[in-house]
Design a protein around this nucleic acid. Structure first.
Lengths: 198, 198
DNA sequence: CCTGTTTTATGCGTAGAATCATACCTGAAG
DNA sequence: CTTCAGGTATGATTCTACGCATAAAACAGG
């Protein structure tokens, strides 16, 4: 989901560059902007007291993010951090709201997006609550592949480290590494020189 | 979130009675109606091969449910089962769509609702991925209390069995019972004759 | 008040994920 | 080619939630 950049600029949006590791917004803080990722990548995480991360999602080029508070008036539910040097475009929330009011089509596109977000969370919650490590990982990979997210369709390669997969499934790196080796041995995916193909 | 019943009826909605245990719609099936719960309660679940349930949410009187596919055109992400004898009101999806188009206010109310759904899922996923049993349960209870969901504000009593809490947090009954006894001993909640007050 | 059913309670052995330690690839930079 | 860092691999040990068994409350119905 992405709004046309020219339209955004016409509404008063501005580009913003962020460097790898920079925090774009923090869990619990107020939402001031609508954000869209022009280039780079952003990870959207929760952190606990021991420093363990849960990655809600990793945002690729051309996706918007942090849109929930724009619709329900709450604070951010997670922290957005640039994974690599990235370029964002951002629009003040009041302008975004006006845009929604003026354009029912855009509003419907966002309802669609929100519904998809809920759907993905349903899927992952089900997997975390009911499934053992291998099945959790399989669920995540299947979803990412279907959505072409964090995935290269040309070379069929998953663009995530074991650590990132662990942080998206509530597991530890070692567990993910072992589980995925198993899946490789069972022919459920291919690991070659550490890279994952599926 | 609930649409005015007179308005729904004017759009062609109809009442429907269901008995306890009856399936209203099933995971994976197509969405034909918008549903609203008039009386009773409905649980919205995923089931795995071994028969273990994950309860995505328990719907109380006056809430709508199963709205995701109406917005993203996908199949149902979970199965809805009547917990007790209940009365629903349902509206054909085409009429619902028309209603959204005709009434931007209602459309905005649903965007708000969808955003809240995503927010709750964020919260729970974070808890399932990062937290031990007690903290998971605490997160769930805190949320339910704040939303007055499955909770009696008059007597401060949680209206869920340990089994239901287990099925909402990806734990086993015994684990939940033990964890909640602990929380009681630590003064984090009160258990009296098996009932939970917080 | 008795009876049966549902829910809560508690003990105990076990499976398996977390944790810690260590070593090995792999690709990028000099 | 060598060095180095980030990622992957693997063994050993700990820890705790699970799974099963059994019992005791709590409650509804007759």
């Amino acid at each position: 989901m992405m709004i046309d950049i020219d339209l955004l600029l016409a509404c008063g949006a501005a580009y913003k560059k962020v460097s790898a590791g920079e925090v774009i917004f923090r869990e619990g803080s107020n939402c001031l902007f609508y954000y869209q990722l022009v280039s780079g990548s952003v990870r959207w995480i929760n952190v606990d007291d021991e420093g363990h991360e849960f990655i809600q999602t990793i945002i690729d080029e051309g996706e918007c993010f942090g849109e929930i508070p724009l619709f329900d008036e709450g604070p951010y539910a997670a922290t957005a951090i640039a994974e690599e040097d990235s370029v964002l475009i951002r629009l003040h929330r009041s302008s975004f709201n006006q845009l929604l009011k003026d354009s029912p089509d855009i509003h419907f596109a966002f309802s669609h997006l929100l519904a998809k977000r809920v759907r993905f969370k349903f899927l992952l919650l089900k997997a975390l609550a009911l499934n053992a490590p291998e099945a959790r990982i399989a669920t995540l990979i299947k979803y990412l592949k279907a959505e072409n997210k964090n995935f290269c369709p040309k070379c069929n390669q998953l663009k995530l480290t074991r650590q990132q997969i662990a942080d998206m499934t509530g597991l530890r790196v070692e567990t993910v590494i072992r589980a995925m080796r198993n899946m490789h041995d069972k022919g459920e995916l291919v690991i070659e020189k550490g890279k994952v193909y599926c």
